[in-house]
Design a protein around this nucleic acid. Structure first.
Lengths: 250, 250
DNA sequence: CGCCCATTTGACAGCTTTCAAATCGCGTGG
DNA sequence: CCACGCGATTTGAAAGCTGTCAAATGGGCG
C-alpha cells in the first residue's frame, strides 16, 4: 500500500471534504486508491461520447473541459475542470459517455478504476456521501450555466463565467480571485457562453473599458470585484463552497 | 409498517431500477419509507431558493419544474418533472436550495424525510447506487439543456424539448411518444428554451406547417417522429433510458 | 354574455452573428 | 538578433435571428 502522505491523490481530498466529514481512515483509504498517473497534452481527448469508461479521471494539474457537439457542428462546453476535480465520475457511473472530455492545457491526471471507486463509496458511507455531494455540486453548476446561456446577455454571461472561474480557482488553491491565469482562447470562452469568438472579443473589450478587468495575453486581473460580480449577476451560493472559502469575496 | 404492495411510492421504483438491480428487500425498504402525501395546486412553490429543505419531494402525479430567476427578472426553467421523479434530491442533499421548485399543474407529491433517504441509501448499497445514478441522469439532462439553449436555434430547441418530453413521458408510462398532453403555456416553453413566448409561437407554427406536429390547445400529436427528431437534433442517449423503453422510437 | 388570460399576428428594433481583412504575438529558423 | 509564419486577436460593415411592442383574436369559465 502506498504511503497516503505522499499520494498523488491529495488534491481530491479538499473537494470531497466539502460534502462530508472524513476521518483518518477515510482519508487513508482515499489516498490509497489504485490509480495510474498520466500527463495529457493540450487538446487531447480524454474520453469521447459513446465510450464506455472503465476509469474515473481525477485532475491533478492543468485544465480540462467537457463538451457536446450539436448538429450544425457548433461546440458547447458544459464545464471546466481544475486540480482536485473528479472530472468524469458522471460518464463513468452512467456507463456510456454522453459527452466528450478534452484537455484544455497540458494536464496531469490520475485514472482510478471504476470498481475501486464504487467499492470505496459503498464501503465507507462518508466517502460515498462526499462523492455524491460532489456530483450534485456539478449538477448545481450545470443549472447555473443553463440560466447563464439561456437568459443573460453576452456581457453578463462572460462576467459571470469569470466570477465563477475566479472563485473556483481560488477555492482550489490555484490563484487569487482578483488575478488569475486564463489559458484559453476567446473561442473557448465563446463555446462556454454560447457566443461567437468575435462577440466575446467585443464584450471583453467592454468589460475592460469599463474598468472591471484588465488583461494580458493569458491572464486576467480583476479591477473591481464587486462591479464584476454585479455585471455578471453573480451570486456564489450555487457553487456550494464552504464558508471559509468565500471570506475574501464578501 | 405499511404494506409495501400498496405504498404510494410505487412510481419511484421504475426510475430507480434503471440504475441498479433492486432485490425484494430493497424494494420493500423503499416502499416502506416514511412519507407524507400532499396535493399541491398549480403554480404553488414547493421550495424556494435559499430554503433548507428537510424532505425530498417525490412526484406521484402532475408536473413540476425547477427554475432560476436572473437579474433582469427573466426566468429560466432548468428541468421538468413527472411521476416517479425525485425532484428535489439535489436541493435536499446540498443543504441549501440553489433554485426554485414549483408546480406546473396540480400535482400529488410525497415528502420523504431527508434522514430516511440518507439512511436507506447508505444501509443498502443497491439503493444508494440507484439514487446516485438517478441524480447523475438529471445531470446528463442538464448538460443537454446547456447545449440546447447555448448552440441550437429556436426551432431546433423547441423540437428537441418536445422529443425529450415525449420520450420521458412515455418511459414514465404517462403517454405515447407520438401523442401527449402538454399542459403548459407558450410562456413556459419559452422559459425552458431561453426564448420569448412570441417566438415560441412562431416556431410552433413552423413545426406545425411543416407537418412535424399538430396541436390542440393542450396536447401535441407527432405527425412524423423521425422528422421531428431530426429537426430537434435529438438523440436519446443522454436520457440514459433502458433499451426496452426506447424500442418504439428506433 | 362578458371577462380574462393565452394565443396569434405584424411591424420594427436590436443584439449577435457572419464575413473579411488587418493587426498582433510568439515561437522558429536563419 | 532579426525575419518569417501562423494562429489568435481585433476591427468594421452588413445581415439575420430573435426580441420588443402593440393590437387583434380566440377560448374557457363564471
Amino acid at each position: 500500500m502506498p504511503d497516503p502522505r505522499k499520494s498523488a491523490l491529495e488534491p481530491m481530498l479538499r473537494k470531497l471534504e466539502y460534502g462530508a466529514f472524513l476521518n483518518g481512515e477515510d482519508r487513508d483509504a482515499l489516498l490509497s486508491l489504485p490509480h495510474m498517473n498520466k500527463t495529457v497534452e493540450a487538446h487531447t481527448y480524454i474520453l469521447r461520447e459513446g465510450d464506455k469508461p472503465t476509469h474515473a479521471c481525477l485532475m491533478l494539474s492543468g485544465l480540462t473541459y467537457r463538451h457536446k457537439i450539436v448538429a450544425n457542428g457548433a461546440r458547447q462546453i458544459v464545464s471546466l475542470h481544475m486540480a482536485g476535480d473528479l472530472v468524469d465520475l458522471q460518464n463513468a457511473l452512467l456507463g456510456t459517455a454522453d459527452h466528450h472530455v478534452q484537455a484544455l492545457t497540458r494536464s496531469d491526471v490520475a485514472f482510478i478504476p471504476l470498481e475501486a471507486i464504487k467499492n470505496i463509496a459503498f464501503d465507507r458511507p462518508a466517502i460515498g456521501q462526499a462523492m455524491w455531494y460532489d456530483t450534485l455540486v456539478d449538477g448545481s453548476i450545470f443549472r447555473e450555466w443553463i440560466a447563464n446561456v439561456g437568459r443573460r446577455d453576452a456581457r453578463t454571461r462572460l462576467a459571470h463565467l469569470f466570477c465563477e472561474y475566479a472563485l473556483r480557482m481560488e477555492a482550489a488553491g490555484l490563484g487569487d480571485h482578483n488575478e488569475w491565469e486564463l489559458p484559453m482562447t476567446q473561442e473557448v470562452l465563446a463555446d462556454c457562453t454560447g457566443l461567437t469568438p468575435v462577440h466575446v472579443n467585443r464584450m471583453l473589450k467592454s468589460l475592460e473599458q469599463d474598468g472591471l478587468i484588465s488583461r494580458t495575453r493569458r491572464s486576467v486581473t480583476v479591477r473591481d470585484w464587486k462591479a464584476l460580480a454585479a455585471a455578471g449577476d453573480f451570486q456564489s451560493a450555487y457553487l456550494h463552497l464552504p464558508a471559509h472559502k468565500l471570506a475574501l469575496t464578501q
